[in-house]
Design a protein around this nucleic acid. Structure first.
Lengths: 212, 212
DNA sequence: AATCGTACGGAGCGCTGTTCCGCTTAGACA
DNA sequence: TGTCTAAGCGGAACAGCGCTCCGTACGATT
């Protein structure tokens, strides 16, 4: 469970690879990712940064140079799982006759991912300030979700809900999906998708007014 | 905006009202409630406790004797609004021909309440540990929600979603409902209700399997 | 007026994420 | 192989959080 793939090495960003990174730097980054993955499993995604540093056997300075902010560490740890989710979208669309069913299954996978990583959903739903994580999830997954929605309920122009918004909704629904209470995030997400499927394109909206 | 109704005075809990509370105690509790209401408006529900204490002109000890934990203060501040929501349930059921529409409107009111009190939704969705708030919301509102669901999609026995769960779902959907992003909590909640209405009783479930 | 215990104030504790800076050492070059 | 430099490291320190503790003040009762 300790191996965390991560992009192999290069991709130096801009254009001129100034100089190769030092060996210990690369070693520490990997140690950090492994440690974080392990700690997140036992203590949840909200585990203190210090704990991850200790587990990896490095100092605070080191962890913050490699991952300038907590969410960025989280993103790095789960990057390959997000990738799998992104690739699952087109795949489901191809293998499933009913695109609505494809969307259903993709949503279920998204929930499963968020819910098993205890606390991840909360991080996703956090306000824009969190930055990196939110942005990465959205940029990588939103187009996939939009494609599924296009196939299932029609183009964005017809008034259907945007993919980002559905993702955010599912993310929110997944918060606390596996605490003792009987709350079933997967079921709620599926009901939300049902709603989207049922009145996907803009028709009779009339959301109602507040009572009190 | 400074008046916070709250139960007038008595309701001493158990059975024997040992002794009347001291005048300054009652005065401070009210000051605290007013201060909290004001601070929550300007700084959101996540405002530091110290800020509320300062605004009320009392010390930390005082605030924590009256409201042993942060969520309990929040509950007290919004208690009358919760009450209004509870009373709105039966009222909507009576005035609306279609019970589904009644449920829709009640849900809209719930979202409106959670979203305008910035950060309240997050507190509601917090894990069981939060205690008081979660419990109060559930105990007071869940029966109302269940009644609406009974009328709209049938009895619990037929396999429909429990009221508590729908409330929790709506609560989660309301998180971050009014930050800059285009996320529309009210719309998502309405879609969720649509899903509940559409496949309310247990029929073809098959939520789908995870892709990755 | 004297008493007594309820209620008060706020310093302080333990926890968090994050920053800062002096020291270490990998690795290029001679 | 020795030297030198800057990339990289460790961890003390900071600010901000919820919450506790305890000596002190004062409202109510006699």
């Amino acid at each position: 469970m300790t191996t965390t793939p991560q992009t192999p090495e290069p991709a130096p960003g801009g254009q001129a690879p100034r100089r190769a990174r030092r060996a210990d730097a690369r070693r520490n980054e990997q140690a950090l990712l492994d440690a974080a993955a392990a700690v997140f499993v036992t203590h949840g995604v909200d585990a203190p940064v210090r704990l991850v540093a200790a587990e990896a056997g490095v100092g605070m300075g080191t962890i913050y140079r490699h991952f300038p902010t907590r969410p960025e560490l989280v993103v790095a740890v789960y990057r390959h799982q997000v990738e799998a989710l992104a690739e699952a979208g087109p795949a489901l669309l191809a293998e499933e006759a009913d695109p609505g069913q494809a969307l259903r299954r993709w949503a279920a996978g998204f929930v499963e991912f968020l819910v098993t990583k205890h606390g991840l959903a909360g991080v996703l739903g956090a306000d824009e300030g969190a930055g990196a994580l939110h942005r990465y999830f959205v940029e990588r997954l939103a187009p996939v979700c939009d494609a599924l929605l296009d196939a299932a309920v029609g183009p964005l122009e017809s008034g259907r809900v945007p993919g980002v918004m559905l993702m955010r909704g599912i993310g929110n629904l997944s918060i606390g999906g596996r605490d003792g209470t009987g709350y079933d995030a997967a079921r709620m997400a599926d009901l939300l998708v049902s709603g989207v499927l049922a009145r996907g394109s803009a028709r009779d909206a009339e959301p109602g007014a507040e009572p009190g």
